[in-house]
Design a protein around this nucleic acid. Structure first.
Lengths: 336, 336
DNA sequence: ATAAAAATTTAAATCGTTTGCGGAAGATGT
DNA sequence: ACATCTTCCGCAAACGATTTAAATTTTTAT
């Protein structure tokens, strides 16, 4: 940002008119004569004049920038969300300022503050796992910066939200296993205190119940990472002879258990069918390709931005917060 | 951005002093008496005054914002890069504005312009595959906005760069295959007009040459995505009987060919050994786990930001462009 | 007591833009 | 010839901060 960057003042000076005239000419204000307008416009074109977005934002009290706070970028689901957000936002003339909380409450607060300092028009937030206090976000809303939560929402704050229908996704996945003939289905679950853990567990139970399959407590194991599968390897192999299906709370857990089972001679899907949740890139790469539930990150991102812009551009509309639920869909591949 | 957002003027008015005094008091300027300073500071604290970053940037002619143009966020390597950039940038008091080009030259130009309009202090760029013209970036540099290229660099523009030592990575990978006993090694390559395509090809050739293995033209195929592998399936299978090793230009291509080969009865690594490049999360998940070359995205991101900030904060330093080369390391797993 | 020096504070310009209002011509009407 | 419109343009304030230079008050020295 050292030299050049020609300004309206520069143009005005060179052309011997006032800055206001230049400003008006550039935006086809009717007060300006055609002659002057052409003069200004062709000159501006020639010197490649570009308005200074900072000055504009300051003047207009609007930055056309959306602030995003996300737990981690390096995560297929979240990066899809960002991608969806980006695409829609840029299409609508908004830009994005992105911060990662790295699952850290303190950083989340700092980031919120930084984005607010930059006067972002609105905030898109997926809260970090360690966040239990929401003052930073409530304050933002109270001071007039709208917030849209996505995926990791916060129940205590009234605002717009976009979430995946975890219950339905889990139900569909489990039902799919049942329809494939499974009767003894193991569920590898996330902790119950996480909403997704709870909802997916409930969806699993619901499917079993509606097919009159007994819900055995020992068939639900807290196990939601690849590493945990490897740690629990022996226990899983002990259970293996008793089961004919596995519903894992995410893809990497599903793939890990497939591998453990395969290494111990089980045929998938012939002997045990496995289904995951998420549909990241490794679902297709797994052998056999993993059936899973497609969690629409890209779509969720678009939807969140859509809701936010909607609110930004109808500031007078009655505040009637919405929760948009995105229904995941079954992706049948070869593991079931 | 509707109500509140208290300003220095507000504070000045309420306290009955001038804005300049408030400004100085807040930053411990020696001209201000202790009494006034305390008055101002405690009041500012009480009303949670936060300076308006836009006004500051406009005044200071410095935004403390770095612009990033990246081909695709949904890509493990690139999202690691972003993560590294974010971490370092925030630590140094800079923010990031992120745009995806989606491998589209036109969007890359638009994005560059948008970032420049926002007066980012510097640009971090990995050029899109379809970009063959670099005027937009050269202009940025000429107008005083430093640019650091990373990964997908551009030879025609003189500036700082951070790259993976693609030649060395490819050489090490190929050499590893040779050491494992391979003599007939197929290379699935990226287009030659991309530097990474060229360099990795050269590394492959170098390794062959130094072991006195003939370089056969028909053993290098332009094929750098999973989809392309599936499209070329038949041709690949025709070649398969003639080879005992594959060096693929990236992991997903490597995994795809492993699967095609396995589906047609080839044993990996017994009959054909396969090595990839990148070390994304699916390398561990593949069956067998894929040997590959670890491309250090996070580190590359940090390094690019480090170089950029270095230049921003030493504007008078002699322009002595650097190219930082990050050497990837071999990750031996079970596919070789 | 009074000038000079030191300590505080304020006014005003600036960054780049927009916009309400007023003003100077020229055109039109009577 | 004079009032009244139009048409076209510029002045100046505003957005929220910083900073130079000038003004004010207080202190010190003579």
């Amino acid at each position: 940002m050292k030299p050049s960057h020609i300004t309206i003042k520069d143009i005005a000076r060179i052309l011997g008119v006032s800055p206001s005239t230049v400003s008006r000419a550039l935006k086809d204000h009717p007060d300006i004569s055609e002659e002057t307008r052409n003069l200004v416009k062709t000159f501006a074109e020639k010197v490649k004049y570009r308005p200074n977005a900072l000055a504009l934002s300051l003047r207009k009290q609007k930055t056309n920038t959306l602030g995003l706070i996300i737990p981690e970028i390096v995560h297929h689901f979240f990066s899809s969300v960002i991608s969806g957000m980006e695409d829609l936002a840029y299409g609508e003339g908004y830009h994005m300022m992105i911060c990662q909380s790295n699952e850290n409450y303190y950083r989340e607060v700092i980031n919120t503050q930084a984005l607010l300092d930059h006067r972002v028009d609105g905030l898109l937030v997926s809260i970090s796992k360690t966040t239990k206090e929401f003052n930073h976000l409530q304050t933002a809303i109270d001071n007039g910066t709208p917030v849209v939560f996505f995926d990791r929402i916060c129940d205590e704050i009234e605002t717009d939200r976009v979430i995946t229908d975890d219950f339905e996704g889990a139900r569909v996945a489990t039902e799919h296993l049942i329809e494939c003939g499974c009767k003894k289905i193991l569920h590898l679950a996330a902790p119950k205190h996480l909403l997704i853990g709870k909802k997916r567990y409930e969806g699993y139970c619901h499917a079993l119940k509606s097919h009159n399959i007994e819900i055995k407590e020992e068939f639900t194991l807290k196990c939601d990472t690849r590493e945990e599968v490897l740690t629990m390897r022996q226990h899983l192999l002990d259970i293996a002879p008793e089961i004919d299906g596995v519903f894992a709370v995410n893809d990497s857990t599903a793939i890990a258990i497939m591998q453990v089972l395969q290494q111990n001679g089980y045929k998938i899907p012939e002997q045990i069918k496995v289904i995951g949740f998420g549909d990241g890139p490794n679902a297709t790469i797994a052998s056999p390709p993993l059936s899973t539930v497609e969690q629409k990150g890209y779509e969720m991102g678009r939807e969140a931005v859509r809701m936010l812009i909607q609110r930004l551009e109808n500031p007078t509309a009655p505040i009637n917060y919405q929760t948009k639920i995105i229904t995941p869909t079954l992706k049948k591949r070869s593991s079931t």
